[in-house]
Design a binder for these strands. Structure first.
Lengths: 122, 122
DNA sequence: TAAGTACATTGCAATATTACGATGTATATT
DNA sequence: AATATACATCGTAATATTGCAATGTACTTA
């Protein structure tokens, strides 16, 4: 039987981030940014072309300009990309330092799994 | 000027997954499952203890039983964990094969970034 | 068989995300 | 200065996610 200890009104739709540690919250935040195919596609386009502008991505992905702009903002929010003003355009590219940080963050989790387990697991 | 080509009513809140390729959709789907600190915490608990049951996680994370069950279902949905019935309990653990697959999937993306770029980027 | 334990599922409320048209801001061109 | 270009932001509608109480299902024990 599971008795409810918390008698307050439930906070629905709200992630209880105070229950988790820094690493768990940070990894989840970055994962959330990668959790949309358009943003993965934007990243891959930046990997291919080294740098590009909003308009390129509108052409490439077939989403509206406002939508691309919103995705770019989310990618920027975790620092995975950066934008530089170039005249009337903004040139976006991967942030190399942050890229490595994020890669390492994920691999710290991935590498926590022992490569070989005797015969335990289910 | 950005003329709208699509004159149909906008499909809001709906990810246009048909615009993206298989790799992009799959990576995004897995990232979405990792995009919640509770699910990262569940994974880490499984890494530490090799296997555990729903009740353990309720104790460990301080979320309701139904909530843990929901998170476990999402983790199972991408195959990152698996559950085995053990009497009246269900023992969860990491799926080793899928774990490696996912790790490689992410690193395929991460390793697309050239380690050293001359002096191009912004 | 009845009561208890363990977990899933359902139903629902609150919040978050996705998408785009419309509009705003800043630079560039005529 | 007026027009065009490039991008951000706002407003809004549709859908998705999060969380939990209540309930359902299956096994276990008294």
């Amino acid at each position: 039987m599971y008795l409810s200890v918390n008698l307050n009104k439930a906070e629905m739709g709200v992630t209880k981030s105070d229950l988790f540690n820094e690493m768990q919250n940070e990894l989840a935040t970055v994962a959330k940014v990668l959790a949309h195919p358009a943003r993965v596609a934007i990243i891959q386009h930046l990997l291919k072309s080294n740098a590009c502008i909003n308009g390129d991505l509108v052409q490439e992905l077939g989403l509206a300009q406002a939508t691309i702009s919103q995705h770019l903002r989310e990618l920027k929010s975790v620092g995975i990309i950066q934008g530089t003003i170039e005249g009337s355009r903004i040139s976006y590219c991967i942030n190399p330092v942050r890229w490595t940080e994020i890669k390492n963050q994920f691999n710290e989790l991935f590498d926590q799994y022992p490569t070989a387990i005797p015969g335990e697991c289910c």
